[in-house]
């Protein structure tokens, strides 16, 4: 997909306080929709899905005192576009001690776009065990799905043009919390 140039104009969609509110809301929605997050595991998709999953777990703990196990699920080896790009380094796959069999898995990612990453994550998950159900939480849904996939929890819907890109920054990885829309502006 076409990437905007690095020096393309950008604007902030979510500043840090907005981003924190959005994370809080997703945490609340998870609690609500899963009846208190029991039997639930949060699996972040590297890179930024992992810190997001940890933040969600921390907020859930803060709100209800529940400890939700957190893990990471690297999807690199399952991607359908491996051969279109230079070889990628692998991220970490770390499952919580209790594993995933028979549990409700919530996949966590920063941006939902074509849906191909989520498909890869579902394939990866299937090789790791058999959850009772799988849900999806994303910070931003920018549209343009290429597969029949939708998120169960969406922080913010951002309608975008294909020529634009959405860049999520998180303190743990990027040193700041914000969401930017890059390119496509006059």
């Amino acid at each position: 997909m076409a990437q905007p140039r690095a020096d393309a104009p950008s604007k902030i969609i979510l500043a840090d306080s907005d981003l924190h509110r959005v994370v809080d809301r997703i945490a609340h929605q998870i609690l609500e929709k899963t009846s208190g997050a029991t039997g639930t595991v949060l699996l972040g998709i590297p890179t930024r899905g992992v810190p997001l999953a940890h933040r969600l777990a921390a907020r859930i703990h803060a709100f209800e005192g529940v400890d939700v196990p957190v893990g990471s699920l690297d999807i690199t080896l399952y991607r359908d576009d491996l051969r279109l790009k230079a070889t990628r380094a692998l991220g970490k796959t770390e499952l919580p001690a209790g594993g995933i069999d028979g549990l409700r898995i919530i996949l966590v990612d920063d941006v939902l776009f074509s849906g191909r990453s989520v498909r890869a994550a579902l394939d990866a998950l299937k090789d790791l065990g058999r959850p009772s159900s799988v849900q999806l939480a994303v910070l931003v849904d920018r549209g343009h799905r290429q597969l029949p996939i939708r998120a169960d929890y969406v922080g913010k819907n951002i309608p975008t043009a294909l020529s634009e890109s959405v860049k999520v920054a998180l303190t743990e990885v990027d040193g700041a919390d914000e969401v930017r829309l890059i390119g496509g502006l006059k």
Partner: peptide, 8 residues
């Protein structure tokens, strides 16, 4: 093998 063959 992955690093030699995995990408383009």
């Amino acid at each position: 093998l992955y690093l030699l063959l995995g990408g383009k």
